[in-house]
Computed example of a mutant assay.
Amino acid sequence: MKSILITGASSGIGRATAELFLAEGWRVGLLARRTDLLEEVAADRPGAVVLAADVTDPAAVDGAFAEFIAVAGRLDVLFNNAGIFTPPATIDETPLDDWYRSVNVNLNGMFLAARAAFAVMRQQRPQGGRIINNGSIAAHVPRPGSMPYAATKHAITGMTKCLSLDGRPFDIACGQIDIGNARTPLVEDMADKLQAADPAAPPLETMAVEDAAASVLHMANLPLAANVQFMTVMATKMPYIGRG
């Protein structure tokens, strides 16, 4: 049975991805802070392993990976997905706590998970595995007032490139998926707020979160001799290409 560990697995893209991989017969490590939500995902799914941990806590992350390996035997894929948004603001009006929280979760948390996965994949036999980082459309084009989120997501692109280079001697592949406007509770809440702020504005273009999950599955199913280095999957009509 192939194995994947998914961070941020309790909701949104992480949850949809976990549910798809479980349906496809994978052993799935579900990592997030809230045990109750993880147990909802795991219910009646024997391939699920609940791993309650905070991605910003190095000891908790290492412990969760060790717990998963004890059950699964090896780690084939990490979907490095956990992340947060903070309220929109210009840089001078951005609370420092929002900046530090974003860096801690979106960058430090992804670093810690990638670090733990890399160590496992380097040491296991057969050696190797795949790390899939969840970047964002914001890794290329930010929304106004999104400094903490956009800056951390741009940093993930650098992390992806470094992991790709450093992983080559150990058969560790690394790619990045940049997802735009998948229908998650966070995106739906943002769409409602934008509509309330400007009722005359066109509705936010979105796509099914299941299509984002299917894209992760495609990346994960490739042999280690092949890699999707960067993938952009987004709502077709969202204003990303050109000036909108």
Rank of each mutant, 00 (worst) to 15 (best):
Met1Pro: 14
Met1Ala: 15
Ser3Phe: 00
Ile4Gly: 07
Ile6His: 03
Ile6Cys: 07
Thr7Pro: 10
Gly8Gln: 03
Ala9Asp: 04
Ala9Val: 05
Ser10Ala: 10
Ser11Gly: 05
Thr17Ser: 12
Ala23Tyr: 05
Ala23Cys: 11
Glu24Asn: 02
Trp26Cys: 07
Trp26Arg: 01
Leu31Thr: 06
Arg33Ile: 03
Thr35Asp: 15
Glu40Ile: 11
Ala42Asp: 00
Ala43Trp: 03
Gly47Met: 03
Thr56Leu: 04
Thr56Trp: 01
Asp57Leu: 04
Ala59Glu: 13
Ala60Met: 03
Asp62Glu: 13
Ala66Val: 06
Phe68Asn: 10
Ala70Phe: 01
Ala70His: 08
Gly73Phe: 00
Leu75Cys: 02
Leu75Ala: 01
Gly83Gln: 07
Gly83Glu: 04
Pro88Ala: 11
Thr90Gln: 13
Asp92Ala: 09
Pro95Asn: 05
Asp97Arg: 13
Asp98Ser: 12
Asp98Val: 01
Asp98Cys: 06
Ser102Gly: 14
Asn106Glu: 07
Asn108Ser: 12
Met110Arg: 12
Leu112Cys: 07
Arg115Pro: 09
Ala116Pro: 07
Met121Cys: 10
Gln123Cys: 11
Ile132Asp: 01
Ile132Lys: 02
Ile132His: 00
Ile132Leu: 13
Asn133Gly: 06
Asn133Asp: 10
Asn134Arg: 03
Gly135Ala: 15
Gly135Ile: 05
His140Glu: 14
Val141Asn: 13
Pro142Met: 02
Arg143Asp: 14
Tyr149Glu: 01
Lys161Glu: 15
Leu165Gln: 12
Gly167Val: 08
Ile177Val: 12
Ile179Trp: 08
Leu186His: 09
Ala191Met: 06
Ala191Gln: 02
Asp192Gln: 12
Asp192Phe: 05
Ala201Pro: 04
Pro202Glu: 04
Met207Tyr: 06
Ala208Cys: 02
Val209Asn: 04
Pro223Thr: 01
Ala225Tyr: 09
Val228Lys: 03
Met238Asn: 15
Tyr240Glu: 14
Gly242Val: 09
Gly242Arg: 12
Arg243Glu: 15
Gly244Trp: 03
